[in-house]
Design a binder for these strands. Structure first.
Lengths: 131, 131
DNA sequence: GATTGACTCTATAGTTGCTATAGAGTTTAA
DNA sequence: TTAAACTCTATAGCAACTATAGAGTCAATC
């Protein structure tokens, strides 16, 4: 099949598929006489793998690592769950940051009310001179 | 003062200050004979304003809006607290997304344990064929 | 007065994972 | 044969910077 059909079957965009090839998440596709990329259906699975990895926020470079790991099935998998643990830590930290941010935004919002002018705006005053 | 001193006083990088000028968050600086940017101390306050806005995640374009608002002190400030409300909503949504992601990562992590090989790795199996 | 060092200037590339073009070529069907 | 639909590569854009390159400026020292 050509890249357009692969895109439909996998739910990835054509450009994304070409990008994945460029970043070594897919092997270089075979080419037709007219230089069109040709795929067999196994590549759909590979793209689904990539999509699942992206859905848990793994970077393309990390996905390339995972694919590399798969080539050595008898080695230890420690590095893989370290990768996941590391991501979990980052996500938790980001949640904390955003919760703090939400608190700040709420208190900022509380400093203003309806029917005020720019000059009286509590939000602007806070942003301008907050200590 | 020249840009280096302004950078030190404000805690912004020299490049960031030049970027803010380019994006109209600062007025074009006066120039010395040798074409160096020259500032007076009021610009430190302006940079602190920008830093506080950035710390609550406002985009540079939104900060440019706020600065524009300040020029019309007698108009209503409704748009400002709408902006803050909108940001709060986005932050809350992002927190929810990340909490879901954390749950997914934790259950993924639970699918593997020590002393397994790549071939046996529960994480990889999940990513490969989940549903 | 020449040189050194610290500073500044503009312009550009890099970061991330795409999307969206431009301009060209290929394939299929009418 | 010509039009539509597809594909190709290469490039720019996003956001908010950081980090260079290569050139110019300025002040102090030898």
């Amino acid at each position: 099949m050509k890249i357009g059909e692969l895109a439909k079957l996998s739910g990835c965009s054509v450009q994304a598929i070409r990008l994945y090839e460029k970043k070594h998440l897919l092997e270089p596709a075979q080419r037709s006489e007219g230089n069109f990329r040709l795929y067999d259906s196994s590549v759909v699975e590979q793209l689904m793998f990539i999509k699942r990895c992206r859905s848990i926020n793994l970077a393309l470079s990390e996905i390339a690592c995972l694919i590399e790991f798969k080539r050595a099935p008898d080695t230890r998998c420690d590095d893989i769950y370290k990768m996941i643990d590391c991501h979990t830590d980052q996500v938790e930290q980001r949640i904390h940051e955003l919760e703090n941010l939400r608190r700040d935004l709420e208190s900022l919002r509380a400093s203003c009310s309806s029917n005020r002018t720019i000059q009286q705006c509590g939000i602007l005053q806070n942003l301008t001179s907050k200590d």
